[in-house]
Design a binder for these strands. Sequence first.
DNA 1: ATCTAAAATGTAGCTTAACTACATAAAAAT
DNA 2: ATTTTTATGTAGTTAAGCTACATTTTAGAT
Lengths: 282, 282
Amino acid sequence: MPMFNGMERIKQGISTLRPSEQKVANYIINNTKAILDMPIAQLAKNTKTSEATIIRMCRSLHIKGFRELKLSISASANQDGITTDRYEDIAADASLSQIIKFISHNNYRSIESTLALIDENSMEKAISLLDQARKIIVIGVGASAIVAFDFEQKCKRINKWCEALTDSHTQLTSAVHLDDRDVVLAISYSGETIEIIDTVKIAKRNKASIISLTGYSSNKVQSLANVNLYASPLEKSIRSGATASRIAQLNIVDILFTGLASLNFEQSVDFLDKTREVIQNR
Amino acid sequence: MPMFNGMERIKQGISTLRPSEQKVANYIINNTKAILDMPIAQLAKNTKTSEATIIRMCRSLHIKGFRELKLSISASANQDGITTDRYEDIAADASLSQIIKFISHNNYRSIESTLALIDENSMEKAISLLDQARKIIVIGVGASAIVAFDFEQKCKRINKWCEALTDSHTQLTSAVHLDDRDVVLAISYSGETIEIIDTVKIAKRNKASIISLTGYSSNKVQSLANVNLYASPLEKSIRSGATASRIAQLNIVDILFTGLASLNFEQSVDFLDKTREVIQNR
DNA sequence: ATCTAAAATGTAGCTTAACTACATAAAAAT
DNA sequence: ATTTTTATGTAGTTAAGCTACATTTTAGAT
């Protein structure tokens, strides 16, 4: 199944592409409709690159090939508007109401644009892995640690064995005890966090399944995983320090959890009601 | 240039098609998404017709060929994104794509509706309190603990003394040492969390300032605080267990932080750049 | 019923487009 | 300066879409 927001993917991913791939991406952005009935050879010629480069660009954007790229572009070609406006970084003299709008908009956009990156097949596979898992290890550091804790908390509510590990030593030592019945959910915005990579490698060696949740780019963690999930960066604001990616990651985690819970709907509802009762008014 | 309403064309034109072409058209109507990555040979097989028939069907619908048919179907297959219609709680038999939409919509709405609850004066006052604070204590348990940690992390990046305390003992013992130069940020969705109330009472006795971040209701924590902030509940889904309130709270925390940082813009930017550098590629 | 003409459908082979594997060139790291 | 890694291109393979023609089916006329 192809994905449905090709242009969104291109715009989001363009900065992570190789130079010549970027040439292609820019050409597509500027000639969106023309692409649709252009053979790959022609596009290669027009962008002074090669067919192979175009295919590689597709892969970098996590799209199977040129055919699928076209389909996904076609799907987004007539529903533009929402996604085109880009917010600049916050100004030095921003008023409070500007800040409120800016931050809220950013957070809200990060959910919206993450939606475009969701591949239902991967999501399905991830949920099924989690469901079958004896034990789930969630690893993340820094901002991602928060997301890891969140998932752990949720799992506890439905009586699923899940441990959030947020410092590198604990991660490593726990990874040693994993086996093929276990699943690792590796959360890293950059996908290049050394601690996470090391832990994932060990887990992999022990035959545990790996689910990655990273930014939308080709990255190390993603390449090591069995299933890849992405949360939109939109991390425009170096200055704000407000990590919108974290909101997007939480959104994904919510989906994973809800999907997981719905596989055993009756029991989950029961568990959730019980746990809710216990923490009532707290 | 392909057209953008493939399904529409098929539905409108189906009655004028030859019998075997109609078989194909019906199949497409019933398996729209599957068509997109199905080769023409497979479709011919599935419909017990031939490749030539499919091509002829395309021509009958005034579409150049099978390639273009797919593009036009793709363009019309995805007319639904995050829609505005109200979502009820999630059903037992919800499909994955329903779950994805439901959760994303919920999270995104929680930001939107929290925006309506923001009182700029209170926000201004809260930011100013935080700015003047010698030390900030952030308290929360359960889902709110995550928000507390998030704020702590952010403060560390701009070198602001801030401690997130998420278990009741630590909260109580730390509250004892507060004085009038300190600020407590109390996060509780219900506003009735006993541990939080107790801690806030002690902090108040010690003349620390209290900022509450609770659901939008009259509640104990709020009544004890100097400044009240609210995060929209929208906790429609007892069952989902997905706490949208948490996203709304994070949004408020982002605003607080950005407001705080912008009061000392130059220095904050400098600090943020430095801390960002240090954690580069992690 | 039988034959003929027209319409509908299928088969097989051709053409073109997409993709793969390998080779070369450029850039980084040692 | 040398090796290793990364980026890009070339040429050949595979597979998909399409065309031309053959066959079958249908309908109307005798």
